[in-house]
């Protein structure tokens, strides 16, 4: 059995001096992307006022994501819907792709969760600057007082790193345990573990999306000019 911490390229692209390795996680990601985009295109090709079942399900998904964003941020969901919703959908499908025999979920390798965490880290900066400007975003690190600046900077990195580790660890461990059990026991034995892996995958996707939203909201709120509580009381 290969180590889950070891990525093996499927093929190499480019000249010898460049040698770009294409890992299986990248190919699976492309497949997931193709499925999602084609499915979305087919689904939204014939939207109508009287929805079909598929359209109703899609609208339910959108409405649920919107409601989650409203609950977390208290703001209009439109600016965050595509980003947070896509994170959730991609991670969910990537986690559940372990059900396909022979497919290793992209989230079970370190690069994909790390890429997701990096995107979240950058999106926090992007939404923070967009919400309160560069000055507002940077002043957010000095709250509640400038002494906290190093800790806040460290926290902004570590919380993204923790998201990466959490997602990678949960998915990788699930896949690894199933592989170990499958190699030791009969064919049907890993099925309960796979069902548990489905639940874990959904929960991890939800946690990753919600934490992303929470961190983005925190950055946006910290970037806004704060009112004096004494003035508010009067």
């Amino acid at each position: 059995m290969d180590s889950p911490l070891q990525s093996v390229p499927l093929f190499i692209l480019g000249p010898d001096w460049l040698r770009v390795p294409i890992m299986a996680s990248v190919v699976v990601t492309w497949a997931i992307m193709a499925v999602l985009v084609l499915g979305a295109a087919l689904l939204t090709r014939r939207l109508s006022q009287v929805p079909s079942r598929a359209q109703a399900a899609a609208e339910l998904l959108v409405a649920t994501v919107d409601q989650q964003i409203r609950d977390v941020t208290g703001a209009a969901p439109a600016p965050y819907r595509a980003f947070v919703g896509t994170l959730f959908l991609f991670i969910l499908i990537a986690n559940w792709s372990s059900l396909i025999p022979g497919v290793t979920p992209p989230t079970a390798t370190m690069e994909t969760p790390a890429a997701l965490a990096a995107i979240v880290f950058l999106s926090i900066i992007w939404f923070g600057i967009r919400g309160g400007g560069v000055g507002g975003f940077l002043r957010g690190f000095a709250r509640p007082n400038p002494v906290m600046i190093p800790l806040n900077i460290l926290e902004s990195v570590t919380r993204s790193f923790s998201m990466f580790v959490r997602l990678f660890g949960n998915v990788m461990s699930g896949v690894f345990v199933i592989a170990i059990v499958g190699s030791l026991a009969a064919l049907l034995v890993p099925i309960p573990l796979m069902a548990l892996d489905l639940l874990t995958g959904a929960v991890q996707a939800y946690i990753f999306a919600v934490l992303s939203m929470v961190f983005i909201t925190s950055a946006v709120e910290k970037g806004k000019p704060q009112t004096d509580p004494k003035i508010e009381e009067t």
């Binding site: 990525s7 890992m23 690069e111 890429a115 997701l116 990096a118 995107i119």
Partner: peptide, 13 residues
Amino acid sequence: FDFWTLGFQAVNV
């Protein structure tokens, strides 16, 4: 840890 893959996945996402 392959940084090409990291970049590919980031761009993909």
